[in-house]
Simulated scan of single mutants.
Amino acid sequence: MLNVLGAKTDFIVDTVNAGAGTLAVNIDGPSKVSMDCTEVEEGYKVRYTPLAPGDYYVSIKYNNNHIVGSPFKVHSKGMV
């Protein structure tokens, strides 16, 4: 996955069929990210903005268990 430095990026975590539980999203990388999470019909919409170029790791847990594929590696490149 690739995104552009300073650009808002969002993704949906589909929890419709997951049952009751707690969602935890953590993004680690070369800098802090601006991040917010809002509830939507499909589950939760997470929006973040990388502030430095490099590789970020998006960890998504539901009820303290990683979802399939988590953590996800996302590369952020500088503006073109």
Rank of each mutant, 00 (worst) to 15 (best):
N3S: 07
N3M: 06
A7E: 15
A7L: 12
T9D: 13
T9F: 06
D10W: 12
F11S: 00
I12K: 04
I12R: 02
V13P: 04
V13A: 04
V13D: 04
D14F: 09
D14K: 14
D14C: 05
V16Q: 12
V16C: 07
N17L: 14
A18H: 08
G19L: 08
G19T: 10
G19Q: 11
G21W: 10
G21K: 06
G21I: 12
L23D: 10
I27F: 11
D28R: 06
D28W: 00
D28N: 10
G29T: 04
G29Y: 11
P30A: 01
P30W: 13
S31M: 07
V33R: 02
V33Q: 05
S34P: 00
S34F: 07
M35Q: 11
M35V: 12
M35K: 05
C37K: 14
E39W: 00
V40W: 09
V40I: 15
E41W: 02
E41H: 03
E42N: 09
G43S: 09
G43T: 07
G43W: 11
G43I: 02
G43L: 03
Y44C: 03
K45G: 01
K45P: 07
V46P: 03
R47N: 10
R47I: 11
Y48V: 02
T49D: 04
T49L: 03
P53E: 15
G54C: 00
G54F: 02
D55C: 05
D55H: 08
Y56H: 04
Y56W: 09
Y56T: 00
Y56V: 00
Y57K: 14
V58T: 02
S59W: 03
K61C: 14
Y62E: 12
Y62I: 05
N63D: 15
N63F: 13
N63H: 14
N64V: 06
N65T: 13
N65A: 14
N65F: 14
H66K: 11
I67N: 11
I67R: 09
G69P: 09
G69H: 08
S70N: 14
